[in-house]
Amino acid sequence: MLRHGLLSPALLTLVLASGCGGSEPASPTPTTAVTLTVTSTAFTEGGAIPADFTCTGAGNRPPLQWSGASAQAYAIVVNDPDAPGGDYHHWIVVDLPAGTAGVGAAIPGQARQLKNSAGEAGWTAPCPPSGTHHYRFTVYALSAPTRASTVENAFAAIEKTTIAAGTLTGTVAHQAASGR
Rank of each mutant, 00 (worst) to 15 (best):
A26K: 09
L168E: 11
F43G: 02
L114H: 01
A17F: 13
P50V: 02
S149I: 14
R112F: 07
R61E: 05
G131F: 04
F43V: 03
A154Y: 00
L114P: 06
A106F: 09
T56N: 14
S23G: 12
W66D: 14
A125K: 04
T29E: 05
I49N: 05
V15H: 10
L7F: 08
M1Q: 15
T100Y: 02
L16K: 13
T146L: 02
T150D: 06
Q72D: 08
T37E: 03
R3P: 11
A69R: 07
T100E: 12
S117F: 08
P62V: 13
H133N: 03
T31R: 10
G109A: 14
H89M: 08
W123D: 11
G131L: 00
E120S: 13
A71W: 13
S130N: 10
C20M: 12
A48L: 01
R136M: 07
K160E: 09
M1F: 15
P30A: 01
Y140P: 02
A73D: 00
L6K: 14
V38C: 02
M1A: 15
T146G: 02
Q175R: 13
A75W: 00
W91K: 01
S130I: 03
N116W: 13
T171Q: 10
A10D: 14
Q113N: 15
H89F: 01
A10C: 08
A73C: 12
A105K: 07
P108A: 08
R147I: 01
G85H: 12
S130W: 06
H4L: 15
V38S: 02
